[in-house]
Design a protein around this nucleic acid. Structure first.
Lengths: 169, 169
DNA sequence: TCTTGATTGACAGTATACTGTCAATTCCGC
DNA sequence: GCGGAATTGACAGTATACTGTCAATCAAGA
């Protein structure tokens, strides 16, 4: 006798973690862009600016490890930040391959100015949940991202950022 | 007197929900593609196939509401699925604007065949967590996505999918 | 019926995100 | 110091994801 049909429903999508992660990312970006509209900065550009501010003179490859962002894509992000005048690319005196990244004065000012909007955006993403649930969700998510760190193409390597200190002027 | 310096650290990125959502999405796609490599199907293409299987004769605009996927991007996704022979686009007899979407025989076979790989992928995403934590995370995430539904450009409208019934052959 | 407004699919443009490749350069073992 | 391996930035190619626009078409009201 034939076995029962597969009987596929949309639950094959809606109840899956992959769908929820994609949807939540979609929503998070939408909220971020909305709150930060006046600054014309995307979430990734913000992360890059913070990392460059925190690690002046970092190079692109190490920056990609610090914000867990693909090296290929980072090129165009850096280009856009540079064309907006937020960062500067300077050749390294010691390694002719690398270009060191620095925040410009206007980049630093932008970063200070955008902070409240970023905080508003992050708060809005979790706003529909109760305080205890917000805390629980963030804890579980931080744990899951950390434990899955090695899976994606560009694992987070926060410690990489320190290597450039003492090597470059 | 000057106020204390902003003192920006990478915590301005790492501890924010937006960063965790982006990172988790990155990891989820990576796992999905890895597990489903032999089927050459992306997460979005999978969602589209399931929706077309579940709602034969749906049009592109309604499909975008059913999988919460931007109408502009969906065009290219449909094109790729069609060129792979998984779906068919047929003009509607009643509305010259719309093209109705149907799964082909090979599309249906692919969908049945890929299910175990999809399930493996979804399981792997949450594997690092304990069973109780997995359940808790999914519950909180489903709740948050639902409560934020109206925020993104394309809110999920699952009920839209039913409208085409009785209107199109 | 006629005209206004909405819908549909298509397209242009921008911005992630990935795979893979390449030349220039640097590093490391010998 | 030399020759192969690794690193770096750049690029080509594909696939989401968004904003906005457009013509064709349909729907609804005057």
């Amino acid at each position: 006798m034939p076995s029962r049909p597969p009987d596929i429903t949309m639950d094959a999508v809606y109840t899956k973690p992959g769908y929820l992660f994609r949807r939540m990312q979609q929503i998070a970006v939408s909220i971020f862009v909305e709150e930060c509209r006046e600054f014309d900065l995307t979430p990734v550009q913000y992360a890059a600016l913070v990392a460059i501010q925190t690690h002046p003179g970092i190079d692109a490859t190490r920056l990609s490890a610090v914000i867990a962002f693909d090296r290929s894509t980072l090129g165009s992000v850096i280009e856009r930040l540079e064309s907006k005048g937020h960062i500067e690319r300077r050749p390294s005196a010691e390694d002719k391959r690398v270009k060191l990244l620095y925040l410009t004065r206007t980049g630093g000012a932008l970063l200070r100015a955008i902070m409240p909007a970023v905080d508003r955006a992050q708060a809005r993403m979790l706003a529909p949940l109760k305080a205890a649930d917000r805390k629980m969700l963030m804890a579980l998510l931080a744990q899951l991202v950390d434990l899955n760190n090695e899976v994606s193409r560009v694992p987070l390597r926060a410690e990489d950022a320190l290597e450039h200190l003492g090597k470059t002027g």
